[in-house]
């Protein structure tokens, strides 16, 4: 419990210090009141929410899923269409966008979830491409073709219109904080433990009475639901959605964030998102060389540190002294064995 409290504290400190940034940046004399920096943080926030949702699928359940952009796109377009064509306030589209993305995920997952890892990877890549081609081809006359949908209305919360990057910042990062809270509860739930068991050994998990197929589909659908809601936030932020925002390379980026940060580890994913998206923004001047370095770094990471930058720690539970250890010993840091839980090294 001490560990849980400590982690709650450090997460609160992290989000609180981020929340202090928008009023602080102008005071520190950052150019233009820090609007650019806030914009970058908004991008990072959206990617963080997406990466956290992918983490359930890829990190916890160990499903090789490289098509997360497809669900993100469905959520963003659903929100955009509901707002511009049906006149819904954009934020009220949030649950519907999530549900539509979840529906797509369900339809994709049911037939293919039992495929072996790398085949599944290819199917999910195919899904991203199919979704993107549908968007470009203006499917059902709804998606606006290659130009996408512009003119999405501003979000309104409690009568306040969100107009500045700072307003959007608080919206996105509150959602990110909520995601961290809910996903950490999920991780430590019976469901989360079952997913980890499936990742480590599917046959043994099935032997212990876990319905592996159903759990994997649930993880997939849940991750997609969250990505769909992230899509709505994206629509709120950019007020324009077009197919070019949802390409295969975005999927690869998300995949890389989870794997390089540390599959199954939320702190790792936060670090990964800041590094990959943040550095990408900082090194905009070296636009061409940065992806070269990124590719080489991915190879090097897999050779030297396949478990990611901040790998997930093995779970420890307070046994209440029943195994003979004194109750106080449970919270003490023991030397961890080889990390049992990291999807990167698992097959």
């Amino acid at each position: 419990m001490i560990a849980a409290r400590r982690s709650l504290l450090s997460w609160s400190a992290f989000f609180a210090s981020l929340a202090a940034l928008p009023p602080l940046l102008p005071l520190l004399g950052v150019d233009g009141g820090g609007a650019v920096q806030i914009g970058v943080l908004n991008d990072i926030g959206i990617y963080l929410i997406l990466a956290l949702s992918l983490n359930i699928i890829l990190g916890h359940a160990g499903i090789f899923h490289m098509g997360h952009t497809a669900f993100f796109a469905v959520g963003a377009y659903a929100a955009a269409i509901l707002n511009t064509s049906c006149g819904w306030p954009i934020l009220s589209a949030l649950p519907v966008a999530g549900l539509l993305a979840a529906l797509l995920a369900f339809l994709v997952a049911v037939p293919v979830i039992r495929l072996r890892g790398d085949y599944l990877l290819v199917v999910t890549i195919g899904v991203v491409e199919i979704v993107r081609i549908c968007l470009v081809n203006n499917i059902f006359g709804l998606t606006g073709g290659a130009n996408g949908i512009a003119g999405i209305g501003r979000a309104v919360i409690l009568g306040r219109r969100l107009t500045t990057p700072a307003d959007i910042f608080y919206l996105i990062w509150s959602f990110a904080a909520l995601s961290v809270l809910l996903f950490s509860l999920l991780e430590n739930s019976r469901f989360g433990r079952a997913l980890n068991y499936i990742r480590e050994d599917e046959v043994a998990a099935a032997g212990c009475g876990i319905n592996t197929g159903r759990h994997k589909i649930q993880a997939f659908v849940l991750g997609a639901f969250w990505a769909g809601m992230a899509g709505t936030l994206f629509a709120v932020k950019t007020r324009l959605v077009d197919p070019e925002s949802f390409t295969f390379s975005e999927s690869v980026m998300l995949f890389a964030i989870v794997i390089l940060g540390g599959a199954g580890s939320m702190a790792g994913i936060v670090l990964g998102t800041f590094l990959l998206i943040g550095l990408q923004e900082i090194f905009r001047d070296f636009l061409e060389a940065r992806m070269l370095v990124f590719g080489a770094a991915m190879v090097a990471m897999m050779i030297f540190r396949p478990q990611g930058l901040l790998p997930a720690r093995a779970r420890r539970y307070d046994t209440g002294g029943r195994t003979g250890a004194s109750p106080g010993a449970a919270g003490r840091e023991k030397k961890p064995g080889p990390p049992a839980g990291n999807g990167a090294a698992g097959t």
Binding site: F64, G117, D118, L121, V252, F255, A256, I259, F294, G295, A296, A297, M298, V299, M301, M302, I303, P306, G343, A344, A345, G346, T347
Partner: peptide
């Protein structure tokens, strides 16, 4: 397998 796939992507 995943490690090699990520390396291939890189």
């Amino acid at each position: 397998r995943l490690t090699a796939v990520v390396s291939a992507l890189g």
